[in-house]
Amino acid sequence: MRGKPIRVMIVDDSAIVRQVASEAIAAQPDMKVLATAADPLFAIEKMRREWPDVIVLDIEMPRMDGLTFLRKLMAERPTPVVICSSHVARGAKASFDALAAGAVSLVTKPKVGLKQFLQDESESLAAAVRAAAAARLRPGLQAPVPRPKLTLDDLPRPPRLKGSSDGAQVVAIGTSTGGTQALEAVLTALPASVPGIVVVQHMPSGFTDMFARRLNGLCRLQVREARHGDRVEEGLVLIAPGGRHLQLARDAAGYHVRVVEGPLINRHKPSVDVLFRSVARAAGGNALGIIMTGMGDDGALGLREMFDAGAATLAESEETCVVFGMPKEAIQRGAVQSVLPLHEIAGALLAWSRAPGGRGGQG
Rank of each mutant, 00 (worst) to 15 (best):
M292P: 04
A253P: 11
H268S: 11
D230A: 15
R224C: 05
M292Q: 05
R224F: 04
G217T: 02
M295I: 02
V279T: 07
G285N: 06
A283M: 06
L288W: 06
R231A: 15
D251S: 12
R220A: 14
G296V: 04
V237F: 00
E225C: 05
R267E: 14
R258P: 09
S278N: 05
I291K: 00
L275P: 09
A283T: 05
V223C: 00
G296K: 02
L264H: 13
A287W: 10
D230P: 15
N266L: 14
V232N: 14
R277V: 04
L218E: 00
R258D: 13
R244P: 01
P241H: 03
A287M: 05
E234H: 12
E234W: 07
R231L: 15
R227W: 15
D251Q: 09
L275R: 11
E261L: 14
A287E: 04
V232P: 12
Q222H: 14
I239C: 01
L303R: 10
G242F: 03
G285M: 06
A280P: 07
V223A: 00
A226D: 12
I290Y: 00
A252P: 09
V232H: 13
S271K: 05
R277L: 13
L246F: 11
A283D: 06
R258H: 14
A287V: 03
P270A: 01
A226N: 13
A287C: 04
G217R: 01
R250Q: 12
V223E: 02
H256I: 08
S278K: 07
H256F: 13
A283F: 10
H228R: 13
G294W: 07
C219D: 01
P263I: 03
R267S: 15
L238G: 06
N266P: 13
R267T: 12
K269M: 03
N216I: 11
A287D: 03
A282C: 06
A253K: 14
V260F: 12
